[in-house]
Amino acid sequence: MTRFPFLAQRLFNTPLAIHPAKAEVVMGALADRLGITSLFRGGELVSLKPQALEDEEIGGSLPRRRGEDRDTGYDVVSGIAVIRVTGTLVQKLGTLRPYSGMTGYDGIRIALLGALRDPEVQAIVLDIDSPGGEVAGCFDLVDLVYRMRGNKPMWAILDENAFSAAYALASACDRITVPRTGGTGSVGVIGMHVDMSQSLTKAGITVTMIRFGEHKAEGNPYEALSEGALGRMQADIDAMGDLFIETVARNRGLKASMVRGTKAETFLGRTGVDIGFADAVQAPSAAFTELFRSL
């Protein structure tokens, strides 16, 4: 059974915290299957600036820990639990490990709680390389990580990037390291709406929405987006953006006005450290070695 309707439901008419530059990747690859080829002209997106999933297959069959019958969702290296956070972040993936270019908040949560209880684990590393993902489920997980501070050292070691929702998660850790070519930031929220009404009209197709409730089916792709609907969607995006800013400011000990002033900009390596979005510029291996020695 195809998962494209499910994917479309997760992409459109819902707040997303993900790097906008990833948009053309998914939209270009999935336009035909999502039925929105009319949005493209000459292979380029002409009406949207959304975000994207990465296509590569990631993980799914990593080795389990010795002596255990089931996967824990993390690997223990010299007393340090390593939890991989890669690709697009989604609320419910149903796996403990990254899979098919995505990582689930549900899997991260279970792995994190397991590592905190594991007597063999002295510290926890979130090994992050992600453009971000869904808002749904993100901030509850971020709050959990923030509350767990002080139980065991928790470091976010970026390899290479932590943008948007991925940065929200990283910001909750005790320490963030970023490589010279890695990035942090993109503290913002975006949403997408597809208007297929003109395309359907040209194709001789008429869709009639029959409603009970003035706002029922608001934002559907078969009608032009009304001014009122746009305003309500913008209000939701603004509310999620404010939550994002306040969360990062709390986690990193920064002023909310400073975080807001970044205007969802991304920062390369040292620049992210200079503004307080990361603590050190380090290669992932060097950061891991430093954490190990600190134990």
Rank of each mutant, 00 (worst) to 15 (best):
I83D: 04
E24F: 00
I176P: 06
A203V: 06
T262S: 10
T247E: 10
A8I: 02
M102H: 02
G114F: 10
Q51R: 09
F212E: 14
A111L: 12
A287M: 09
K255G: 15
F277N: 07
G67E: 02
P221C: 04
L116N: 03
L144K: 06
L158K: 01
K49R: 14
G137A: 07
N251V: 07
G183S: 12
T72I: 13
G191R: 01
I110Q: 12
S78N: 15
D238L: 12
V125H: 01
L295W: 13
A172N: 04
P15A: 04
G107I: 06
A23Y: 00
D129Q: 12
G185Q: 06
I83R: 01
I205V: 09
M209E: 05
G228H: 09
V178I: 15
L254V: 12
I18A: 12
L53F: 13
Y222P: 03
I18T: 09
E56S: 11
R33F: 00
N251L: 08
C138W: 03
I128N: 08
I110P: 00
T262M: 07
R252V: 00
F139A: 05
S197N: 09
G87L: 03
V125G: 06
N220I: 01
G42N: 11
V281C: 04
P119C: 12
M240A: 14
L126N: 02
R260A: 11
G188C: 08
R260P: 07
E290R: 12
T177N: 08
R109M: 13
V26I: 03
L93D: 00
R175I: 13
L62T: 09
F163I: 08
G133H: 01
Y105E: 01
T289G: 10
R252N: 02
